[in-house]
Design a protein around this nucleic acid. Structure first.
Lengths: 118, 118
DNA sequence: TCCATGATTCTATGTTAGTGGAAGTGTTGT
DNA sequence: ACAACACTTCCACTAACATAGAATCATGGA
């Protein structure tokens, strides 16, 4: 994971349409969703959705698999974790071990204090 | 953490100038960096940097503190963890406990398999 | 082979974000 | 009070992104 990859991930998720798409795919888990169903569920024009899916796939956030004449998309949650890891690795001048609270598992419920807070 | 907050975070970090700024602040840890030093280190016009810092602060990724006539900025890494938690909470139809590997601590070194991979 | 279906690519149009320079706000020191 | 400094806000201009519709490509079935 380098800065350019991280930037691509953030650029990909910076659009409401793409974040919605990604969240839907994350919710679907390993089953994934085919493009047509995504379009109807998101109420999006197929060409528009295709544009955004291509963007997400380019960033590595989703994967595609051909299924007959369908295209099945799946979210790649591991990449998000790598991005978070990339950020925390740079914490405190490259010594993230100084920030113990960052190693704790993260959920939206627990709002831990900032890393290296004085 | 809701979808709008997550979107703001991604929008904020989707610019190379802002990601550079954020990484610099993350590296500085709790010490933070004043606006002028940020501008010289990033080789950015002060007005431009101010624009981006305001964006980052609006998303909650950085905090500001007045220090005489200086403005000291600090990164808020905890927010990134909340965003990751927000995404994983939606995994597999709202049952993230099905994805054990996601609970493991994340670094850029370990590239774990995707959540819910079949 | 021909047609219907699923999805993508192409093309244009409107909207939004990024940038630097000038002017303004607040703070410190004389 | 005045001047110097640190930073921000305002204002234009340029570049990039989002969207919809038409055309194109690929697959599966009659």
């Amino acid at each position: 994971m380098d800065k350019i990859s991280a930037l691509q991930v953030f650029e990909a998720l910076s659009s409401s349409a793409r974040l919605d798409t990604y969240l839907l795919l994350v919710g679907a888990g390993g089953t994934g969703i085919v493009a047509g169903e995504l379009a109807s569920r998101l109420d999006m024009a197929p060409s528009n959705l295709s544009f955004h899916l291509k963007n997400l796939a380019h960033a590595g956030l989703v994967t595609v698999e051909q299924e007959g004449r369908f295209q099945r998309y799946r979210a790649n949650l591991a990449l998000m974790r790598q991005v978070t890891g990339f950020l925390t690795d740079h914490c405190c001048g490259g010594h993230p071990e100084q920030c113990a609270e960052l190693a704790a598992p993260a959920t939206s419920a627990n709002a831990s204090p900032s890393c290296c807070e004085p």
